[in-house]
Amino acid sequence: MLALFKSLPDDGSYNVGDKLIGESAAEFIDDITDERVVSYYDVDELLEDIDLINESKALLIAAFGIRSSIWRPKLADAIVDGSIGVPVVPLASAWSDFPGDYEQLTSENYPQYDRSVVQFYQYVAKHAPAVSSRDYYTQKALEGLDISSRMVGDCAWYDLESLGEKMCKPEKIDKLVVTDPHQSQYFDQAESLMSELGGMFPDAEKLFCTHGDPSQSPKRQELASNANKYGFEKKDVSGDVSNISFYSDCDLHVGYRVHGHVGFLRKRRPSVLLCEDGRGLGFTETLGGCGFPAFTRRVPEASSTPKKILQTFPEGTIHQLQRKYLGGDRVSHPTTPARDDVVDQVTDFIHQELTTGWHRYEMIPAVIDETYEREMKPFIREISNI
């Protein structure tokens, strides 16, 4: 028996992307092994079932979070104090940092994590039979913590029915999906994107999809309502994975949600990702160049004392403060604001791909299929043979 923590976000957003990760992991583990799999989304539910967990061969944690603060503290405590008495296996670990670019990963100051955080990750790695990462940026981030890992791809890459299929190459766009940004500093940029795409595809059915519950943020609700001005119908797809099953009937995704992007690519549908942080940049680096940074890295002349102060903060710290004191909505970052030219770059890219038959997408199915066969399958089999 194997135990699986599917790890929904604990912020109440009902992010459908996280649900897709967990459901996909459960599906391919069942496909790869003959082991019974017991699954959990909630930490408290998992800890209440600790006796059953400790009868399993291992506890796999899908999208194990690598970040500057310990992810799921209750679960971390149970790992360190020995309450969980079986091997804990990070499955497709996920590095999440801002700006999350290569410059940050290779800077002399990386990682700027508290010693206790680093020690926890190293403790997990030391006691795990193996550690895996979901993209090359996460793999490099773990290297910065002196942890080696195997790059097995993201759990949500793998739609078993689509493995072996070629990329769909639409000759025209009849149905278009745009997904919402996580961070509010990109909301104006998202409206510009919808405006341009609305003009490019006036006759297409156009949907603006929110992957998390929009009612949690008045600014996000306003953004979703504004979509109508550009010919888009707003659609809340948070919660169950069935809410995005229609993605397989669409021609193109353009937007900010990493698992909106993956939700299309796993079904062999083209997608263009605007990368908000290390998650999107890591996927673009790993799968291929169909994503663009939504931010620009620069240090502008400070126009006020607060900006000068903010520019002295270590990377990552500013967003912790913004989350704490600004109710979860991020103001424009003083050194990495939203790009002014990315919408033009994205629309040029789409024009080129429609003209050339989406040739820059041809190798993506092979990357997904080969990573599943050569990396994910052997990794899961290794854990099941403990």
Rank of each mutant, 00 (worst) to 15 (best):
C209Y: 15
E161L: 12
D236K: 13
S215D: 14
V241E: 06
P218Q: 15
R257I: 00
K206E: 08
K234T: 11
H259K: 06
P202D: 03
F264I: 01
I173F: 05
L197R: 07
S149L: 12
K175L: 02
H259Q: 09
Y186E: 09
Q183R: 15
L223N: 11
S215L: 15
P218C: 13
R150Q: 12
F201A: 11
S162P: 09
F208M: 04
K267C: 05
V152R: 00
I244A: 08
M151H: 02
T179N: 07
F187I: 13
G198F: 06
F232Y: 14
C275E: 05
G212H: 02
G263D: 01
D277Y: 03
S148K: 13
K206C: 08
D180E: 15
R220W: 03
Q189W: 04
D213R: 11
T179S: 12
D174V: 04
K234E: 12
E276W: 08
V152A: 03
P170C: 09
D240Q: 10
T179Q: 07
Y186D: 04
G199M: 12
E222W: 12
Y247K: 02
P218E: 14
R269V: 05
R150L: 11
E191L: 15
Q189L: 11
V241W: 05
G263E: 00
S217D: 09
V254K: 08
T179A: 07
S225F: 13
G239Q: 10
T179L: 05
Q216D: 11
M167H: 05
G198R: 01
V241N: 06
I244Y: 00
G199W: 03
L197I: 07
N228D: 13
M194Q: 08
V178Y: 07
S271C: 06
S245G: 03
L160R: 14
F187S: 09
M194S: 04
K235A: 10
L160T: 00
C168E: 01
W157K: 01
L193K: 04
K169M: 10
H261S: 10
S248G: 04
V177E: 03
S192E: 08
S238I: 09
Q183V: 02
E161D: 13
E191P: 02
D249M: 06
P270C: 11
Q216I: 13
G263K: 00
M200F: 11
L163V: 10
E233M: 15
D236H: 11
K229I: 08
L197Y: 09
V254E: 08
E191W: 09
D174Q: 10
V177K: 02
E222L: 15
V241R: 09
D236T: 14
D174A: 09
V237I: 12
L252E: 14
L265A: 02
G239T: 11
S225Q: 11
K172W: 04
K235I: 14
Q183S: 14
S184G: 06
A224H: 04
F187V: 14
E276F: 05
R268C: 05
K175D: 06
C209L: 15
F246C: 02
T179K: 03
Y256N: 07
V272F: 06
H261F: 14
S245V: 00
C155L: 09
